Structures are given as structure tokens and as C-alpha cells.
Measured scan of single mutants.
Amino acid sequence: MPSETPQAEVGPTGCPHRSGPHSAKGSLEKGSPEDKEAKEPLWIRPDAPSRCTWQLGRPASESPHHHTAPAKSPKILPDILKKIGDTPMVRINKIGKKFGLKCELLAKCEFFNAGGSVKDRISLRMIEDAERDGTLKPGDTIIEPTSGNTGIGLALAAAVRGYRCIIVMPEKMSSEKVDVLRALGAEIVRTPTNARFDSPESHVGVAWRLKNEIPNSHILDQYRNASNPLAHYDTTADEILQQCDGKLDMLVASVGTGGTITGIARKLKEKCPGCRIIGVDPEGSILAEPEELNQTEQTTYEVEGIGYDFIPTVLDRTVVDKWFKSNDEEAFTFARMLIAQEGLLCGGSAGSTVAVAVKAAQELQEGQRCVVILPDSVRNYMTKFLSDRWMLQKGFLKEEDLTEKKPWWWHLRVQELGLSAPLTVLPTITCGHTIEILREKGFDQAPVVDEAGVILGMVTLGNMLSSLLAGKVQPSDQVGKVIYKQFKQIRLTDTLGRLSHILEMDHFALVV
């Protein structure tokens, strides 16, 4: 994948999101292997301009796509893939009243899908469409860049269908997702969380590099694949309309690839034109409109599966009536509230959605109805927002919020430890010299600072030695090549209790 991002070429006709291997024109390309080798690009942008032909009021008969309808489940399912879809609609009884809503608040519980998330729908649909058009064949390999849930859905379907599955996901995604993927037989590649989507090191860039190296491999490409919004247009939206008897006044959905909100909203605009569509985008993402909503100094966020630093091709923002931004604290607070007060075992993005819903639905009156999409299960986040310690460490809970008995030293300040200034190293000294210094002084790690004293990161003896043994660096290389740029900081005025929580999850903390 090139470091400079080429513009994806656009073909003359058809839909841009065809499933299957992508040609340089962004659509299915038939021909000899030699032709494909000559024409197939190194990668295709996940934010390529959409060429979708959908228009409100256009006859369904003019759609270029294969459409399906929700099917009634048999008493005995032939395999677990038949437990994807037909998820329950559940009334939220307490939270709406707590925040003064007059309307009825309903939750579409997508964590009841077989793999635990709304992404099971698009995973199965992308595979079925690729099999139907002859792209996927027995023994082929599926590769997908994902925040985890699409990966789980694909790995689940691949396990049943017999495909090899490789999932490329950023490091910030939970260990629970990784464990589930491994249990399903998927191979996992992790990428830096802070890598831009168009960087060769991003999950998108690495996935395309693997595709170019592995024979008979395919990126189904949830960011561009029409099967993504079509899955929701054909099934999720129809289920909502049936469950609500066609009567709903507002739908609120958090947005990642945009397939969920695009597919549902398009069908609702056709069948229930008075329904307002509300999009939820986390602070630090750029999906919301108008652009002024996205202006923030924050560039990272903890909530998973929603928000991006690019506009995915499948996201149709014209069908969203209003956007709201959400933050991590309210997302996790509301997710825990949904679990504790409503018994809905949902993930953090569901918290984002409901946090926005109780604001947006203030305009609705008694007798009206708001539906929220709860995308995934708490299963993926047992060591994250479900953990009091994690919430404390991230600053989303305060010590006084917890009532468990603490040891005698818990409320003492870090400054009472009488710490001395640490050994520091410059980023320009060599790895070999740094190892000598650390061994001589008896230290395992040291902060790396520039000549102005600005902290650049941390270097550890173990990481340097393993990097040297693996051949990633040489003793003569500058130590700046092996620094940890993500590390926890703590102030002298913070409590030892807070430091204790940090050290339970990290090997060190830097006192500043």
C-alpha cells in the first residue's frame, strides 16, 4: 500500500459497493488471473465517493441489488447463522422517566444476534452475496479491517462455511474481542490505534497488504460494500417497522461504517417519512454534520465500534436529520445504567446512543415513540467499562463513588512517597548505550525526554532486548525507535489509591 493515498477510480455505471474482489474501477472485475494482476490496485480507499443510485421515491424494481426479506425461524435451526436477525424490541421503562421523557422509549437489542452484535447481519450478508456472485469459493481466505464486531461476525460465518479468516484490528480494541476471535479460529493482526486510516500501518493498510500477498484472499470491505446497508434496509428496518406496527417518530443510532443508519433510515424514509433520524458520533470522530460539531482538541476516545477519521463510502449522511456528539463518560455511564436499571447487557456504544436519545427525544410528546439501536453486548468489555477499576483509572468514576473498604494508605498523596527525580535518556542515544546505562543503574525503564525536557515516551529494558533479539533494531539504532509513546501519567497530588489502580493494569506510571 502506498504512503500517498491515490484516488480510487470510478467506473461508468453500476453501484460502487459490489461485493467481491475490487477492480481499479471499484466494481467486480472478471477475466484471467493475468488481467486481474495487471488491473487490481494495491488498495482502494474506504472513503471513495459513493456511486449508489438510491433515491427517495425511486421504484424498488430499479435497484441493481439482490434483495432479501426477513424469514421466520424454524423450530430447529440448521446452523447458528440462522440465529442472525429477528432481534427483540424491548421497552426501556426507567431511564426515559428518569430523564423526563414523555414518549415511549424502545430498544432494538442487536446483541441477541448469534455473534453478539449488529455486525453479524452485514457479515453474513457480505459472505452470502460474495458466494452468490462467485467471488468467494471453498478454501478462500477472508481478510477484514475491523474494530472487532464485524470480525467476530465474519469469523463466526467463516467457521460454519469453512473459510480461512484473518482479522486486522487496532490495538485499542478489547482483549475479549481478541479472545472470541481466536476461539472462532480467526487469525488476528493488531495495528497502532493512532495510525491514520490511509497510513500503511493502519488496520485498513495492513489488511490490503495481506490481501496482495495471500492468494485467493478477499477483503469484503464493510466500508464500501453495498451488502452492509442492504442488510439493514432489507431486514433490520423491516423488523423495526413490523415490531412497531409502522408507528415510530424517531430513530437514534450510533454511527461507525454508517451501514446501520443508512440502511434503516432509507427504508424508514420510504415507509415512515415523518420519522426523524438521529445520528450519534463520538467526540474525536469526524462523521457528524455540520462540520463545526467535529471541532475539538480530542483525537482519541475509548468507546469502541463507532466514529472514524474518514467518511466511509457506505455512509449516506443525507438521510440523517440531526447529529449529536457523545463523550466517553456519558457513554459508559449510560451503558452501566442500562445494565443495572433495565437488565440490558449492552456495550458502550449503546450507552452513547441512549445518552443522546434522552436529549433528542425531549421534543417528542406522549403517545409518540423513539427507537434506539443497541449494537453489541457487554461480553466484549468485561475488563473495560464493566470494571470499576478501569473506570477509575480512566477518570470516568471517582473514588467516592465506590463504597468498598480501602487499605490505610489509600488516600495518601503520591508526594508522600518522597520520590527522587528519575533517570532520563535522550532519544538520540543508541539502544546499546541505553541498555548499558539501565543495567549500570539497576533500572528496568526510563523516560525519554528531548533537550527541552519534554517527555516523549518510555523505554524499557525488556522491550529493547526483545527488539534486538527479533532483529527489529540494532544496538547502533537510536533509542527513539523503541519508545512507548502511550503511558499513564500521575500527579504528586493524586492518591496512592489512584496509582494502585493504574499499576494493576500497566507496568509503570510516570509522575509529573
Rank of each mutant, 00 (worst) to 15 (best):
A186M: 06
K94V: 01
V180L: 11
G100I: 01
R45I: 12
K72M: 03
G57V: 09
H203L: 06
K39W: 11
K75C: 15
A38M: 05
T68Q: 14
E176M: 04
D140H: 01
C272G: 08
K25L: 09
M169G: 06
R266I: 15
C275F: 07
A155R: 03
T5L: 05
Q243M: 06
S32N: 01
L248C: 11
N194F: 14
R132F: 08
K267L: 12
T262S: 11
I44R: 14
E4F: 05
S32E: 12
W43L: 12
L220T: 04
S199Y: 06
L124S: 11
R164H: 13
K30L: 03
E213C: 08
S254E: 01
T141F: 14
K269I: 04
Q7G: 09
S175K: 08
E29L: 08
L220W: 03
T13P: 07
C275Q: 04
C15D: 13
E128T: 08
K269D: 01
C109G: 04
P138E: 07
T87K: 10
K108A: 01
R45D: 08
K97P: 06
C272W: 10
H203F: 07
T87N: 08
S227D: 15
F111S: 01
H218Y: 08
R266S: 07
K25V: 06
S19T: 01
C109N: 08
V10G: 11
A237R: 01
A186F: 01
P273D: 14
V160C: 15
Y233Q: 01
N149C: 01
K172F: 01
L230Q: 09
G85F: 07
G259H: 01
N228P: 01
L156H: 06
A114P: 03
C244K: 01
T141C: 14
E37I: 08
I80P: 03
H66D: 15
I143C: 01
I122E: 01
M89W: 01
P273K: 12
D79T: 13
P12A: 01
Y233V: 01
F112A: 04
P273V: 09
K102N: 12
D79L: 06
T13L: 07
K137Y: 14
E104G: 09
T193M: 08
S27L: 09
L136F: 08
S217I: 01
A183H: 14
T260Q: 08
E9C: 13
C165T: 04
E131F: 04
E62H: 06
S199V: 04
R196C: 08
P16F: 01
T5M: 01
C244N: 01
G96D: 08
H66T: 05
K39L: 12
I80G: 10
P46A: 07
K271G: 05
G185E: 09
K172G: 01
A158M: 08
K172D: 01
V255H: 01
K94W: 10
V255G: 07
G31I: 01
D245C: 13
K267F: 10
A24M: 08
I142W: 01
H232S: 10
G259C: 01
P229F: 05
D249Q: 01
L220K: 01
R209E: 10
E104P: 03
P200R: 11
G246C: 03
G11I: 01
D234V: 01
L154F: 15
M173S: 09
K211I: 09
T236A: 04
K211F: 08
G20C: 01
S63P: 10
D221N: 08
E144S: 05
T13A: 11
A48S: 10
E144A: 01
I219T: 06
P215M: 08
N212C: 11
R18Q: 14
A183Y: 05
H67F: 10
D133W: 15
V90C: 15
N225E: 01
I261E: 05
S23G: 06
R45S: 13
P192L: 03
S63Y: 05
E270N: 04
L77I: 05
M89S: 01
C165R: 01
V90I: 01
V10F: 11
D140Q: 01
K75I: 04
I142S: 01
P215R: 01
A60P: 11
T193F: 07
G11P: 01
G139H: 11
S27V: 11
A183T: 10
E9D: 14
D221F: 09
A186E: 06
A231R: 03
L251F: 06
A237Y: 06
S147Y: 01
E34Y: 11
S32R: 13
G100Y: 01
E37L: 13
L81F: 09
K97T: 06
G139M: 06
K102S: 01
R161G: 11
V204I: 01
K39G: 01
E62K: 13
L156Y: 04
T53R: 05
I167F: 07
P6Q: 15
P215C: 01
V255I: 06
S63V: 07
P192Y: 01
R18W: 13
R91Y: 12
P2K: 08
M173A: 05
T257C: 04
K177D: 01
R164I: 01
E176R: 01
V160G: 12
L241Y: 14
G148D: 10
R209P: 01
N113L: 06
I122G: 01
P49V: 10
P2A: 11
W43D: 01
F112R: 01
S254D: 01
R125V: 01
